[in-house]
Design a binder for these strands. Structure first.
Lengths: 391, 391
DNA sequence: TTGAATAATTTCAGCAAGCGAATTAAAAAA
DNA sequence: TTTTTTAATTCGCTTGCTGAAATTATTCAA
């Protein structure tokens, strides 16, 4: 954050940093932070604070620079099964307001969906008194397949429509860039940003929840073939496994996603029906509670899920050879019940040399992680566009 | 190759190209090509040649530039099951000489192996009267797992040694850069270089032969997590499938690699035994001939192989979402017998939206493709190093 | 044969980004 | 108050470009 640190991390010289930062400050994109924390020194964290001087040292103190939160705002929308979550953040990425709208998403056609999303975005702008020209970009995280080259939405379990350009009507309504991404990609970006070590090399984030998604981040950036998303959830574990909502059979998702677990549990257990086959968070919590109470059939169900998770991780490691694998998403709440089956299967399913050279992290993440990651992604795209236009 | 074309493809201005090329020509790295073909015009291929002028047009003709073949030489070594193949190429990548050494590779320890490889390289240098200072780099393609970060060889079916740094002794013997890569990566680079369309986006090359390997090329460059290689051959197709030589069970390789097919065929057919379980090319040809002659058990075997191939492609597409998939390697000689089973299974195993957006090519490739690709890879590394040192 | 016409390359002057050295600024320590 | 230490800026210079114009090598047509 201080200029010295920027020079070190970018490898540029002081004069260069000085010139760049002063130009950006003239654009009101950057600003100097308050003098309070400003007197803390950059490399203070790892030294003892016992000098009683509150982290101060000799010499001119560094001036902290921050993104000017007032430079503009970003709206991120997460479109999931029966849920539209919206968040507005300032230019530094801090959330200003958010909303959740529950409805049966599969009942919507493309026009109705876009109308709803536009209304949600407008509500966010109104709630934070954001003038239109302060809106810099909109990010949409979608549960399903997105073609990153064209931005088109190809297929989603949450929607009955396929192969439509959802971004276009929204772009036209607000006149700003609309960034589309798979929701697992958004989660991946959020988690990678939280731990600097994960931003080095290739990090694969497996999101387990309503579906199974994967986001791939290379050196902190989400860039890839046809999108940073991977459809590992629809890799098959056998040619005649359980029915998946994609229409095919034996998908990893059909063994591991919460809708699959709930559906299978209902075949032998008395549980309330799920709305459009999508159990609520409360229903999944109930399922876990019953399993922990000691139902052997449920324990078996979670063991099978553990096997499916291990197969997913094994395939990821074998095909992608990532440096880091993150297991994330609400499905990990039940990881304790999957663990032994997962570990046992993983050993059998990956070459030991590969397993040894991959670090696996478990990070059960909240729902807000999606919109947080989407804000980051959108900010990056907006910044890139801004750079290109001012040059 | 002509300067005009360079300017167009790099986006740099003419003066810039002029300055750079003249500097490189002063270094004797580039040279102007012969006047014969030089008078052909760059964008002539797609216009009719009916003007009877042998492709000439008005205006000053472009001067073709080529890498100066005499600038230096590259040796590429391919280390496979029972075979060490060596090739020496000039700076433009044309092969000058090559050799094949057949021996039981699994009987060698690290020292003996390096000694052999060094002897092979020296033989190549002698055969082409290459002075030591003209040797710019050595590339080694290895069948097995290579850690691209460290260059260490981790595991190979062709060798009994594991986790050794094979590059170091060779680097010390010749004092030049030694580039290690998975052999499938080398094949991928060679095939991608042959078709410009494949150099755009993400191309996954599945090599089917002694083993199953995969090379991943992004925008023409082989860069990745822990190497551009993927161990998709060791993804499991079921928890209790046939024994694989990696020690685990049910690997795709154990259904599809030639050693697996030959081994399984020998359980019901009278075939000569294979040396260290590795059938020769002639033995595999015999197997294919018998199958084509109409043995129903062999037909069934190849149908199973087709299923395994489909699973490999399905997994690749689902996890990687590549723009292009290439099926390559000697195993594809039998693709006609696998085709119907392959196509049928592929439809079931990949989401149709993904399958539709992926182009699949079949390119049965020769053995020399490995060393050719390895020469390219090594040249690229050598050039990068050269750039850094002269700047 | 000779002079357009055409296209590739080079020359030239100028600009912009970045660097090293020296300078100025702000704070703690002596 | 002076010295020390570190942050940030200013200054002059190099480098790598670019655009405009000049130069060169050809073909085409008179």
């Amino acid at each position: 954050m201080p200029r010295v640190e920027l020079a070190r991390s970018t490898g540029l010289s002081f004069p260069a940093i000085s010139a760049i930062t002063s130009k950006l400050m003239a654009e009101e994109l950057l600003c100097e932070a308050e003098t309070e924390a400003a007197t803390l020194w950059p490399d203070d964290a790892d030294e003892e604070d016992a000098d009683g001087l509150n982290g101060r040292r000799r010499g001119r103190p560094a001036v902290l620079l921050t993104l000017n939160p007032e430079f503009g705002r970003i709206v991120a929308v997460s479109l999931r099964m029966n849920l539209i979550e919206t968040l507005i953040a300032d230019y530094s990425g801090s959330a200003l307001a958010q909303s959740r709208l529950e409805l049966t998403t599969r009942a919507l056609d493309a026009a109705a969906l876009c109308e709803l999303v536009i209304a949600q975005i407008e509500a966010m702008l109104d709630a934070t008194a954001t003038p239109r020209h302060r809106l810099l970009g909109i990010g949409m995280a979608l549960q399903g397949i997105v073609d990153a080259d064209t931005g088109r939405h190809l297929w989603s379990p949450a929607l009955s429509i396929t192969d439509v350009d959802l971004a276009k009507p929204i772009r036209e309504a607000f006149g700003v860039e609309v960034v589309m991404a798979n929701d697992a990609v958004a989660v991946a970006l959020s988690l990678v940003a939280a731990e600097p070590a994960l931003a080095q090399g290739l990090t694969a984030t497996l999101m387990v929840g309503h579906g199974i998604g994967m986001g791939i981040v290379v050196d902190g950036e989400a860039r890839w073939g046809a999108g940073a998303g991977s459809e590992i959830g629809h890799v098959k574990l056998g040619s005649n496994g359980p029915q998946c909502r994609c229409g095919q059979r034996g998908c990893i998702e059909a063994h591991l996603a919460d809708y699959a677990l709930y559906r299978d549990a209902r075949t032998f257990l008395d549980l309330p029906p799920a709305v459009s086959q999508q159990p609520s968070e409360a229903q999944m919590a109930l399922l876990r509670a019953r399993a922990r109470a000691g139902d052997p059939r449920l324990e078996q169900l979670f063991r099978q899920a553990g096997h499916a998770l291990a197969e997913a991780v094994a395939t990821t490691i074998s095909v992608l050879r990532p440096h880091h694998v993150i297991l994330a998403g609400p499905g990990l709440e039940a990881f304790d019940m999957m663990r032994s089956a997962y570990e046992e299967r993983l050993e059998q399913a990956v070459l030991p040399w590969l397993l040894k050279s991959t670090a696996i992290y478990v990070r059960p993440s909240e729902s807000a992680t999606i919109v947080d990651g989407m804000v980051r992604r959108t900010l990056r795209v907006v910044d890139r566009n801004h750079m290109e236009t001012t040059e």
